[in-house]
Design a binder for these strands. Structure first.
Lengths: 212, 212
DNA sequence: AAGTGTGAAAAGTTTCACAGCG
DNA sequence: CGCTGTGAAACTTTTCACACTT
């Protein structure tokens, strides 16, 4: 179960990585407000976590704070940006421009956070062209060539569940390293590829348990 | 940190509840295929978990299996449906029909899984009416009355981040008990309300860390 | 023989509490 | 004195391994 090839950034809890993104957002807000120093207590409250957890999370990556004072906002923001690999604009492709896929294409929430959805692919590209989608939609046979020539590493997968595994296999073969999967299925990929599942119906169902 | 008012279904890991939904999907597929019995090994593989975990998860709710044989598919499906409170169609409202909100309204993925999006609310209902949305969109001032008269308990929240906390306060006051929140903010709610965050940009950012 | 149910061990994560620095 | 950095404790969740049932 080891990955001897990957010089693993080990020992860092996966959940801490998620929280890093949250901290980053809070820091951007602080920067916008001209705040230059922040204590773990303040930043933790903004992020919705406990101060000790914030300090521990940051400590995984080095020492950034000044005792008695707090953290310099800019240093922390830079550290997180570098850690998350967000120094440069990341190109992303979207595969499957059906209901949800084309919905996400019209929604430009990814762009706002520094990701560029550079192209979409669909078995039937014409069907979406009409409906107000401005990002180019190509036939899905062009996928491999595009990924290779544009060295895209991230893909958003919105194809119907029955095609999801087949499509992800093609994506992985083409060189995609991270997949944001909206299909309700556990995709099987090689260990060097990361899959993140977003299952909207499942989230609702989960809520359903907690209401009485 | 206790909630003495809530006769808590305690001791059951939250993550186990998520997995219950996954198991349920797999069971539905088995039912469709006419399979009547399934072993923990088989079902676990379909769900992408380890057999021992599946057995432990099911054991939180009772004993359903027959040793040497496996689990009866129908009994298990019924148990999960009841546990998740999915015996009846759940009405859901969507608040904030902007880019993402109207995208989700056109996407009918929730309906397929047994949730009915009965209405949407927006500060500017007309703007969405045009764009192929069939679910009725009302002015957001009608929210309280609608929730009360239709006894809706679940809401999907897609308003811009700066309004999210204010809107969720209104929702909670109106009687909403579960919120699927798409705004990148940690909402503060009373402990009897459950909030589930879906943060699409954060998921992409998280992937970004794992690609080299 | 096949496969569940489960206590106990292991692994992973969060919280505490306090020493130590500025 | 205030606030970070961190080892150790507490807690949660997963995995193991095997007794037990059909």
């Amino acid at each position: 179960m080891e990955s001897p090839d990957k010089p693993d950034k080990v020992d860092i809890p996966k959940k801490a990585i998620y929280r890093l993104s949250i901290y980053f957002r809070c820091l951007q807000k602080l920067i916008a407000n001209g705040v230059s120093t922040v204590s773990s207590t303040t930043l933790a409250r903004a992020a919705g976590v406990k101060p000790a957890q914030l300090r521990k999370d940051l400590a995984y990556f080095g020492q950034f704070g000044t005792r008695g004072l707090g953290y310099p906002v800019d240093v922390l923001a830079t550290m997180i940006r570098e850690t998350l690999g967000r120094e440069h604009l990341q190109p992303v492709i979207l595969v499957g421009a059906g209901n949800l896929g084309s919905a996400l294409l019209r929604y430009h929430g990814f762009e706002k956070e520094g990701f560029e959805v550079v192209a979409a692919f669909d078995a039937n590209p014409e069907s979406t062209r009409a409906r107000g989608v401005t990002i180019p939609v190509y036939p899905d046979s062009d996928l491999e060539t595009f990924v290779a020539t544009h060295s895209v590493k991230l893909a958003i997968l919105c194809v119907p569940v029955e095609f999801a595994q087949a499509v992800v296999n093609r994506l992985v073969a083409a060189g995609i390293q991270g997949v944001l999967n909206f299909s309700p299925i556990m995709l099987e990929v090689t260990p060097d590829v990361t899959v993140n599942n977003v299952d909207l119906a499942l989230e609702l169902e989960h809520l359903s348990y907690f209401i009485r």
